[in-house]
């Protein structure tokens, strides 16, 4: 499933990286500790987090993640969005919490 389709079905709001919405979502990973994500998140994962500062884009790009889903209405920093646009990393936002998003991802077969 593409990031675009996933975003549509889970009602996630695309905030940046719109030109990479065709990325394939191979799985999902939930964590707010960046080093933990670096160690464990698999390539092509949708990363579910409440971190929204610019460094999340570096982590996601280094690991070839499919996208970043920022939960619970956390406001994403402007420089994060700018970097995500530059690097072509989709950032999606939602007011739902990580658990709800993961349930949704599971229902989608991810």
């Amino acid at each position: 499933m593409t990031v675009k389709e996933m975003a549509g079905r889970l009602n996630l709001k695309p905030a940046a990286g719109l030109d990479a919405m065709e990325n394939e979502v191979a799985g999902a990973y939930v964590c707010d500790l960046l080093s933990w994500v670096m160690a464990h998140a698999g390539k092509g994962s949708a990363w579910v987090t409440i971190q929204a500062h610019v460094n999340i884009v570096a982590v996601a790009c280094l690991l070839d993640l499919a996208c970043i889903i920022v939960c619970e209405g956390v406001e994403v920093d402007a420089d994060t969005l700018e970097k995500a646009n530059d690097e072509g990393m989709p950032v999606l936002t939602t007011t739902k919490d990580a658990y709800s998003i993961c349930c949704g991802l599971k229902d989608l077969g991810i």
């Binding site: 707010d32 500790l33 080093s35 987090t49 971190q51 460094n55």
Partner: peptide
């Protein structure tokens, strides 16, 4: 609070 300082940096590097 920014998600750093998990104590995983050096162990990750070694691994």
């Amino acid at each position: 609070e920014m998600g750093f300082g998990a104590g995983m940096g050096l162990p990750n590097m070694k691994k």
